[in-house]
């Protein structure tokens, strides 16, 4: 699947570490797909599998996010700056249900609920790691 322009979803993006890493991330491992690396343009998707869905439960926050498995490609766009990055699904996450109704806003645009987790490489391509969350739109 290509990094296309068909709207898939929108919400909050967060970031996480995976693969070999330093500090507390050293124990993160390769993620649900076994291929996750912090330095790669990758993402965790809350419906990467049925088992993944049972953990993240975005439906409890009103997000009926479609299934996209390991290897799926998406374009993630920062809703205010317009910066975008193409990522490959390589893990399961974020745990949407733990932060229902949380929102991130910029320039009057607000996105609610955590719908995608980006690796540091991917997140830093469109925003600052020190912000923690970004409002994004996702395409495929």
């Amino acid at each position: 699947m290509a990094c296309g322009s068909t709207k898939l979803w929108n919400g909050e993006a967060t970031w996480f570490c995976c693969g070999n890493a330093w500090g507390p991330c050293a124990s993160a491992g390769g993620g649900a797909c076994g291929t996750c690396r912090s330095s790669a343009l990758q993402a965790a998707w809350p419906n990467a599998s049925k088992a993944c869905w049972d953990i993240t439960r975005p439906d409890l926050c009103g997000e009926d996010i479609p299934r996209r498995g390991c290897g799926s490609v998406m374009k993630v766009r920062h809703d205010c700056s317009g910066a975008s990055v193409c990522v490959t699904v390589s893990d399961c996450g974020p745990r949407t249900r733990s932060f229902c109704s949380e929102s991130t806003c910029c320039d009057g645009i607000c996105r609610t609920n955590r719908v995608i987790d980006l690796t540091p490489a991917a997140f830093s391509a469109i925003g600052s790691l020190s912000s923690g969350t970004l409002p994004v739109s996702i395409f495929e």
């Binding site: 920062h78 700056s81 910066a83 469109i126 600052s128 020190s130 912000s131």
Partner: peptide, 10 residues
Amino acid sequence: DADAAFAAPI
């Protein structure tokens, strides 16, 4: 600062 540095696509 880091936040401002990434405010827009480079």
